[in-house]
Computed example of a mutant assay.
Amino acid sequence: MSLPAYFISDAHLGVNPPGARADREKLLVEFLESICGKASHLVIVGDLFEFWYEYNDYVNRNHFELFFALRELVRLGCEVHLLCGNHDFAYGDFFPKSLGVQVHRSLVLEIQGKKVYFHHGDGVAKSDFGYRIMRRVLDFPPNRFLFKQIHPDWGMALARFVGRNSRKIGESREINLQEYLGWGASILKRKKCDVCIHGHHHISGIWDVEGGVVASPGEWIWKPAILRMEEGGLSLEML
């Protein structure tokens, strides 16, 4: 019998909006420690951090326990993947080189006889039009270089300010779940996959669609949740 696989999304570590679970990074580390040697895969489906940017000689010290837990998971044989989200797309080589965690924009894995497609889910909704433009601006190599010239403490403060304001705008936006389900069904057909797993809209669920299953682990800000795959079946667990 194969080991279970686990999927999580949208922890947004580094920010604590009103009502957020204050101990969620500690809870996440405890969860990672609990599955060491007991999981075949862990896929973090984007927005692990509220903001992430890598400097040549700087790593955010606030997340060291998380880094250690991820490295230990890898050391004990778990395949760990991290997807870029709309808040943390500026990864460099720290995760793959220092922790053994593979970083992707999107990903297809064969797990327990199922072909599974992973993507954060940003840019899917029509309401993400403005974000798609802004993402191209922020991810433009010369702009990333310029941001790198800012002192890390100032850069983080600026990013948190922008993130807080964009979150306020996003909270008033209505989620059209059918957009995501329709997109997921089209992905399954185009990629010839059985399952599509994404995050971004913070709604946890498992939905049958034409051609397979679309699922989302939900979020870790207010109601931490885990999507688990065992013997090819999916289940949700709230922590």
Results as ranks from 00 to 15, higher is better:
L82E: 09
G232L: 05
L239P: 01
E25S: 05
L3P: 05
E54R: 03
G233H: 13
G46C: 06
H119S: 15
I111S: 14
R24D: 01
E110V: 06
L13P: 07
W154S: 00
W183H: 15
W154P: 00
I150D: 05
G184H: 07
V74I: 02
F31P: 05
H87E: 08
D139I: 00
P217M: 08
H202K: 02
A22H: 08
G14S: 04
V195Q: 08
G163W: 04
F140M: 07
L227N: 06
D128M: 11
H104D: 07
S34G: 11
I187N: 06
V137A: 14
L70F: 11
F95A: 05
D10S: 02
P4E: 02
D122E: 05
Y53V: 00
V195S: 03
Y6A: 06
V195P: 02
R190T: 15
L82T: 07
G123W: 00
L138A: 15
K189V: 10
F118W: 04
I111K: 14
F31Y: 11
L99A: 04
R190V: 14
A22L: 13
F161H: 12
N165V: 06
A225H: 11
R136D: 13
K189W: 11
L236K: 05
I8T: 12
A39D: 06
G77I: 07
E50W: 04
W222C: 14
L73G: 09
M134W: 02
M229S: 13
F147W: 09
V116L: 04
P142E: 04
F67N: 00
H81I: 00
I133R: 12
R105K: 15
S106G: 11
P224T: 02
I44E: 03
I35V: 15
V59A: 11
S204P: 10
P224D: 01
L76C: 03
Q102N: 10
I35P: 12
R228S: 11
S106F: 08
Y55T: 01
L109A: 12
V137G: 10
L188Y: 08
G212S: 05
N56V: 02
G170V: 01
G92Y: 04
E210I: 13
P17L: 13
S204K: 08
P142W: 06
V195Y: 08
V108S: 15
L32A: 08
L177W: 02
R132E: 13
F145Y: 04
L236C: 07
P4G: 01
G184C: 13
L82V: 07
N16L: 14
C36V: 12
E237S: 03
H201I: 13
V124C: 03
Y53H: 09
A69H: 03
D153I: 03
R75S: 13
C84G: 08
L48H: 09
C196R: 06
S2V: 07
Y117C: 13
G184S: 14
R132L: 15
N60Q: 05
F129H: 11
E72Y: 00
Y6F: 11
S204T: 04
L28V: 07
G232P: 10
D23M: 03
R160L: 15
F95I: 05
E72G: 00
L70W: 02
H200T: 09
F140E: 01
V43W: 06
W222L: 15
A5T: 10
C36G: 01
S166C: 04
G170W: 11
Y180Q: 01
N86M: 01
V162T: 15
V108M: 10
W52H: 05
